[in-house]
Design a protein around this nucleic acid. Structure first.
Lengths: 167, 167
DNA sequence: TATTGTTATACTCTATAACTATA
DNA sequence: TATAGTTATAGAGTATAACAATA
């Protein structure tokens, strides 16, 4: 941990109040708290970096999986991304309305849909990937080295695997 | 990174569809994606572990900061927790309605409020802390050693500090 | 005029349940 | 009867703007 434990500076226009630094106690050593903070910071950074992009973070994952798994079904996407069926439907409906994906009935089971990227969807997918790479780079900045980033990803991966096995 | 890169198993009742494992490509090496996944898993674990607790994750941080910083103002809380003023008001209103905190006018500046835990609030704060400790423990399970946990917290802390300095 | 806190509002995210069409 | 997808709805979470009281 860097910095003096338990304290944090707050900005603001020099309030006459007695508090300029708050005692944080054990809060910053709580994983749930830290995860939430960093994730929120990431989302804000994304929104700020790509303000007019007309897509959401979830779209990146969905487009990416469809691109790599042609004829994947919505339910397979839902299971893989741990998103519920209703949410997947909304995302796919929007992507469909934008002409980025096709949703056809499965030949083998008419209840299922098979998903593919359109030519436009493929181009958009590549464009989004470039944006995301840039957002990642600028978010991390020089805070972590490449080794530390993969270390971080590895630790998060292990938490996720254990959490998923507990479902 | 653990596991074979780019693949993940999905559960489900043996769909006849062609996809049982999806190719994930570079998605799992995206920090934004991983953060979101783990944070969501944490929230689900919290909701499942403490279903009838009648409080939200934010309440823990707010109560904790009021406990350690008597007479703190809502605006100082907002700045420290990077929550906007309107959100803080809603949280404080609920905590007040439950009789957990007091909100009095500041003697030095009548625009400000000074916040304190009530006796009930102090007890509830301690109860919540115990619950959170248990949730943290059970979430992490045996996925990470204590050393790895502080390593993870340190890496996240550094990301947060850099992100905050960029505001 | 500027600031603190409040209220109102809206949009995103997540979750649940009811519905349809197929199987 | 069960499953895949859809629709509708509701509750958190987040953000913005307008407002009242005070400085």
């Amino acid at each position: 941990m860097s910095g003096k434990a338990g304290e944090i500076a707050i900005e603001g226009s020099a309030s006459a109040a007695s508090v300029e630094r708050l005692q944080f106690g054990a809060l910053p050593t709580t994983l749930g708290y830290k995860l939430r903070r960093v994730q929120l910071a990431y989302k804000r950074h994304f929104t700020f970096s790509a303000p007019d992009s007309d897509f959401q973070l979830h779209d990146v994952g969905v487009l990416s999986l469809i691109a790599r798994n042609p004829d994947v079904t919505p339910s397979a996407l839902a299971a893989s991304l741990t998103i519920d069926a209703a949410q997947i439907t909304n995302i796919l409906k929007l992507l469909d309305a934008k002409g980025l994906i096709s949703r056809r009935k499965s030949p083998s089971d008419s209840r299922s849909r098979v998903l593919r990227l359109t030519a436009l969807g493929q181009r958009e997918h590549e464009r989004l990937n470039a944006i995301i790479q840039e957002v990642e780079q600028s978010f991390i900045g020089d805070a972590l080295s490449p080794e530390e980033i993969s270390q971080l990803l590895g630790l998060l991966e292990r938490l996720e695997v254990v959490a998923r096995s507990r479902d």
